[in-house]
């Protein structure tokens, strides 16, 4: 178990006979109460395929049924019923090539993190730009790891704070804008035809996908994944 921020935690699962996954895929987790009542939900895999354990980062939704159990009640050594990996279009491997443009809102960073960790594990220098939008510094996931992630060559990770930036922050503030996308540079420009992955709450994904299409990105190269009620 890894505390990622005051709410979110990562669960490191030892899955027997795990057949491997692709970065971006998710896993179904099913919980069973003593009387047989069951609840299941999907969670993005945060770990790269190169890692032998499967790591889920769970950001609990208020009023949720499965996610608060996973972040508050689960203890190391507990057994969970899982199924997967699941998901096809929202995946990337180094062999697919680049450039790669990743746009995450809040815990929408999780499947993108699997892609970044995979790129690192393969020591790829594929041109990659990531822009992560969070409300405040305490909502951010993997901040330290992202600051240290290699190979640095070709990789640029930017953050924007929509509510409160950390003290002394001189970077971007506010929701993702057309200008921010432009400032990500030429690998992220429509002319470079990057593979684009956008993940976050519906409002974030709709907003960012619209900006991307308006900027001239081919909608067929923009893959989206959303979570949460609209």
């Amino acid at each position: 178990m890894i505390e990622e921020n005051p709410r979110a935690r990562s669960l490191v699962l030892d899955v027997p006979a795990w057949a491997g996954h692709r970065a971006g895929q998710h896993l179904d987790v099913r919980l069973t109460a003593e009387d047989g009542y069951q609840a299941q939900r999907s969670f993005s895999i945060a770990s790269p395929p190169e890692q032998p354990t499967v790591e889920l980062t769970v950001d609990p939704i208020e009023d949720g049924e499965v996610s608060p159990y996973l972040t508050q009640a689960v203890r190391a050594g507990d057994e969970l019923e899982v199924r997967g990996p699941i998901g096809g279009p929202f995946t990337w491997t180094v062999d697919d090539g680049g450039p790669l443009l990743l746009l995450g809102g809040g815990s929408g960073l999780v499947p993108l993190m699997a892609m970044l960790r995979h790129r690192a594990a393969r020591e790829s220098t594929i041109e990659t730009r990531a822009l992560i939008s969070v409300r405040t510094a305490t909502d951010a996931l993997y901040r330290r790891e992202l600051a240290e992630l290699g190979p640095r060559e070709g990789l640029e990770v930017r953050w924007t704070y929509t509510r409160t930036a950390p003290p002394g922050w001189d970077g971007w503030r506010g929701r993702v804008s057309a200008e921010m996308l432009e400032l990500l540079g030429s690998p992220a420009a429509p002319q470079a035809r990057p593979r684009v992955f956008v993940c976050g709450p519906t409002g974030f994904v709709e907003h960012v996908a619209t900006l991307l299409v308006d900027a001239g990105h081919d909608p067929a190269r923009v893959r989206t994944e959303r979570f949460g009620p609209s």
């Binding site: 049924e65 709709e206 996908a209 619209t210 909608p219 067929a220 923009v222 979570f227 009620p229 609209s230």
Partner: peptide
């Protein structure tokens, strides 16, 4: 599970 909202899911930008 029973949902009161209306979640949105799609694989790409909204046309």
């Amino acid at each position: 599970y029973f949902e009161r909202g209306f979640p949105v899911l799609s694989a790409g930008p909204t046309p």
